[in-house]
Design a protein around this nucleic acid. Structure first.
Lengths: 227, 227, 227, 227
DNA sequence: CATGAATGAGGTTTCATTCAT
DNA sequence: TATGAATGAAACCTCATTCAT
């Protein structure tokens, strides 16, 4: 199903339509900056590199963004918005609790790869932990993201389908943590023979949800109760 | 138990005894570089900053390490060794499978924090994914790390204590992935009210292993088999 | 006639008209670099020195020339072009073979001093003999220079005015070699009492051509033949 | 006779015997410095490079020579002495004036190549023309060199074998100038098809003396006198 | 005699930024 | 809107030199 991990759907085109307020010149720069910052981080990317990638002059970058810092913030802002949009569209489908969680996990993982640059930008921010302004942005985005899945889980807990002696947030953590770990390590899977099975993200996701669901389903408790 | 997440035991002093081959001058620089690179990454740390932190002249840094790149490699080498040593000492205790896994998870998380700088360095490398030489180092270290826990799990699978229809590597992934996720996000826990429970790493670890163990224990299968 | 060896006619002003393609900023830098490189050589001249001489900032030098090496190449390119232009204008006058050679020798010597900086740059390159790219340039220029005089001599050989049992190139070598030697040593003439006569380049040139012509004129051969 | 220009006889060994006052350690350094300075000039050669070439530590260089400048002076001093020794041994043979000049020219050219490093060092100094102390040394050496050949020529002029209306120093200049020019350009002869004949230095020397002698011999004057 | 450690000064080059056009 | 010219600051790195051993 997935040839090179994921069919990396081109995610850049629709931007222009969603954000018509920013000139196309600025959009070019923003896109170039996003790509480079995601790949290499803030400090190792020069305005010159961004200008070249965007096909404009260095001065033009400063014409659109006051400072490098502000360009970075704009990139982050953009990324956060994209991420939020994506989460808003996240749909846990309908069906049993198990099916919904499985669907959600798979879709979440897909999103990480579809918006790989955004994901990387956010992971970078997570690792810094100090930069004041930029951090706020990311934190809020993550919070939104996180709350969305937590609420779904809580719903199932209230319905009695999931154990209630486990924090919903903990369950969400396992789901998101493992998906992020997969995203971070997928490029290195070749060197881990033990992880060969994980080259197919579908397979990975299936096994993850298998463990997770069995670990949290109330069915087990019933089984025990019956004993 | 843990005031600020973990009592961050000072991990730098014993180095001199374990590695007497490197002069103390070089060791100072190495330690300074490790700290700064871990905090801020490669490109945003200048040799000047490292020199100041180490209390030596800029030129002296180049006396001991030919280039900034080579200093970074030495730091990484050092970190990988430390990490490997730590893993070698990882002890899954004795007791039931559940207890051993629980013990291992807790100890592993503790190690991440005890060697926070090393952990950060390696996470940074994971995120880059292209740098040839430096990457090899980290990959090997991770591989060793990973294999260690996979083997423990396989043992329990063979004994029939854990399900065999789940890849041992997948189980290890959940354990390590969640621990790393915790490490990466713990500085931001304050902003996530849902995750308040996780401020205590013991609590986090307990809930994680609770889910994980229930998800993989063979007991459940037996229960089902009896139904 | 020559106060301090030669009236060193200012050779920099016309450049702007002959090479309008290069901005005046770059021209300033190029001129400064030419002067300093000619005086002191490549390695002992810093970009800082060039910037100061040109009245611009160090960074501005790199705005116009990517590296010090490339600036040097541009200087050499410029010098080679100037030299070629000069040679193209070299005019052996009209009159007897003797007069033409005498005229040529004197004019060639004059050129060496008029374009003293260019001459020095080329002599320096001759001495290195390894630098790939820069050397090609100089070699080509010298070749052109050399061929020009060789052809004149060949003409006279064909007319029977000069001996044909001597290579034209050898005759050219004497002419150019002695002129270059004069150029290289003129600053030290004071310390060589024997060479006092040579302080006047006209005198030097007259004596040189006197020897040379008598050595190559066919007239002598005829005299002998008649005996 | 000459395969690759000249059979470059190893000229370094006898030094130890001629200068037993200097320790062998210092001699190593001196030899290394001579080679490198001759090849690349003063400023582009670092003490480090010299130390490596000599197989000693950088500090050891300063143990033997107070400063880089003083090491350079020692190299120059050494070179000047070698050159003087060589000139003192220069032997114009016995035979006719023509033969003696021819012999001298050939031997002088041979010396330039045998002591190529020394020759290069001195040519470099000639090109600088400002460095106070170092220059004195070279000037004196050249003066001695020059006077030696001038005196030989004067002898023949007095005997009436050479014209007296030409300065002896001018004749010497042609001889030395052309030989030095040959030395400076021999590495580039390949690219000058016209100069193919000069690949054999014997041939070059023969043609040079042919021209020179015919240009200065008094025989010609006699011929004219008879007309 | 010989060396490794250490350093201040200075080298080339890069960077973010400004400004006139 | 867009750019080339210009620059001060700071990056990495080299250099000649000193000193303790």
């Amino acid at each position: 199903m997935s040839d090179i991990i994921f069919s990396q759907s081109s995610p850049d085109k629709p931007k222009a339509t969603t954000k018509p307020s920013i000139s196309s010149g600025a959009q070019n720069i923003l896109a170039a900056a996003e790509e480079l910052f995601a790949q290499q981080g803030y400090s190792s990317i020069s305005i010159n590199a961004i200008a070249k990638q965007a096909g404009v002059s260095k001065a033009n970058v400063f014409h659109h963004f006051e400072t490098k810092e502000m360009l970075y913030m704009a990139v982050l802002q953009n990324a956060s918005t994209e991420m939020s949009d994506l989460i808003a569209e996240l749909d846990s489908g309908n069906g049993s609790a198990s099916q919904q969680i499985g669907h959600y996990a798979r879709q979440h993982l897909q999103n990480l790869f579809d918006k790989a640059r955004v994901t990387q930008l956010i992971l970078r921010e997570l690792q810094q932990g100090d930069k004041d302004e930029s951090f706020q942005l990311v934190r809020n985005t993550l919070n939104k993201n996180f709350t969305s899945i937590v609420n779904i889980i809580k719903k199932f807990q209230e319905r009695g389908e999931f154990r209630q002696d486990i924090e919903a947030a903990m369950i969400a953590t396992v789901l998101i943590g493992c998906n992020l770990f997969y995203f971070q390590t997928h490029s290195v899977l070749d060197s881990f023979p033990e992880l060969a099975f994980a080259k197919d993200p579908d397979n990975y996701c299936k096994q993850l949800t298998d463990i997770l669901l069995r670990g949290i389903e109330n069915k087990n408790a019933e089984d025990r109760g019956s004993s």
